[in-house]
Write a protein that binds this DNA or RNA. Structure first.
Length: 257
DNA sequence: GCGACAG
DNA sequence: ATCTTGTCGC
């Protein structure tokens, strides 16, 4: 069994990490947030990136998670894994990780290639308690994780320029669009993420540090991973894979009750 | 108390 | 997230 698979098993089997009540989950986030570490990420040294995503049935009766590993140097898929089950935690904004992490970890435990860094479809530090799913997975695995979300949950930001690669900082505070978030950052506001235009003229993505990466390195890598579409390639692949898997599971279930 | 609210 | 066809625009 791989090192990651062992770590995954240990984490999933620890009942103390998976509270059933929102109140306890929030308390656990506050506790675990102190373990997040920001470290320099040399995007040039990264080779394998794992994109993570989860797909749900409309009635919430099933879910499928996928992890797809890409070689950044060729942008080719080198490994992938999926896992299906029933949701064990409701969707509550801010407690997203308690719903998505278990199936994602199960998928990660089934990979053969060990990723250098993981990319979540969601936030890391850009979270009310500075502990989004990217931080959560990072701390549980003690691995480099970054987050790339498609909409804002928390934080003030201004709109980046229309060109691909243009960006503005996200700073702590209630979700709000401001005239100049870079000025707020320069005045000392806590920078929690970056609004990044991965495709000219298209809505940007929101990048934040999960664990053991830095914002600069994460944003650099996310941009490289998005040469053509708004959403970074590893996440696009994972999105497609878990969606197909989830549909297949539902079809099989309704086909042979 | 009211509104917001990753996927 | 999911349910869904066509359609507006470069």
């Amino acid at each position: 069994m791989s090192e990651i698979a062992e770590r995954v098993r240990r984490v999933l089997d620890d009942p103390g990490l998976w509270p059933r009540e929102p109140k306890e989950a929030t308390a656990l986030q506050r506790e675990m947030a102190g373990r997040v570490r920001e470290e320099p990420l040399d995007a040039d040294a990264v080779r394998y990136v794992a994109g993570l995503d989860v797909s749900y049935a409309r009635d919430d009766s099933a879910l499928s998670a996928a992890a797809v590993v890409l070689d950044v140097r060729t942008m080719e898929v080198v490994d992938s894994a999926v896992f299906s089950a029933e949701p064990s935690f409701p969707y509550i904004s801010g407690l997203f990780a308690f719903r998505e992490s278990p199936p994602v970890l199960e998928a990660l435990g089934r990979l053969s290639v060990t990723p250098d860094v993981y990319l979540c479809d969601g936030f890391g530090l850009a979270h009310p308690r500075r502990f989004g799913v990217a931080c959560h997975l990072g701390v549980l695995l003690d691995a480099p994780v970054m987050g790339s979300a498609k909409s804002v949950l928390y934080g003030k930001h201004s709109e980046p320029g229309d060109e691909r690669g243009s960006w503005t900082p996200m700073v702590a505070g209630r979700s709000e669009v401001v005239a100049d978030s870079a000025a707020l950052a320069a005045e000392g506001a806590e920078v929690i993420g970056r609004v990044l235009r991965t495709r000219a003229g298209v809505k940007p993505v929101y990048v934040s540090v999960g664990h053991r990466v830095d914002l600069e390195g994460a944003a650099d890598l996310v941009l490289r991973l998005s040469p053509r579409y708004r959403v970074p390639e590893p996440v696009r692949h994972a999105d497609r894979l878990c969606g197909e898997h989830r549909k297949a599971v539902l079809a099989a279930r309704d086909d042979a009750p």
